[in-house]
């Protein structure tokens, strides 16, 4: 089970989620040193808002702002739900 959303354009990010039996977050970012923690926090909060405790999340970030990271993850989660049905 896999779903993704977003792009690798500047100010965007590509998020891919895969069903998993644990919580794993992988972040690659052009601003990892400056914003890695912040990106992780947005991902964790978004997962929590969607009641997801276990998931493999890969975020390839090109300088996306928080609202974009949140949006891409939400869309990926929704897409995974839809492909489930």
């Amino acid at each position: 089970m896999k779903a993704s959303a977003g792009s690798l354009e500047s100010s965007d990010c590509l998020i891919t989620i895969t069903k998993s039996n644990k919580l794993e977050i992988v972040i690659e970012s052009v601003v990892l040193k400056q914003f890695g923690d912040q990106i992780k926090e947005v991902i964790l909060n978004t997962l929590k808002d969607n009641n997801i405790a276990k998931m493999h999340v890969v975020c390839l970030d090109k300088g996306a702002l928080d609202y974009t990271i949140k949006s891409r993850l939400e869309t990926a989660i929704k897409r995974m739900g839809e492909s489930h049905e």
């Binding site: 977003g6 928080d66 609202y67 974009t68 949006s71 891409r72 939400e74 869309t75 929704k78 897409r79």
Partner: peptide, 15 residues
Amino acid sequence: KDSARTLIKNFLSKY
């Protein structure tokens, strides 16, 4: 289309 809706919703909720 779904991606854009979510993006704009979150964007306009924040700014």
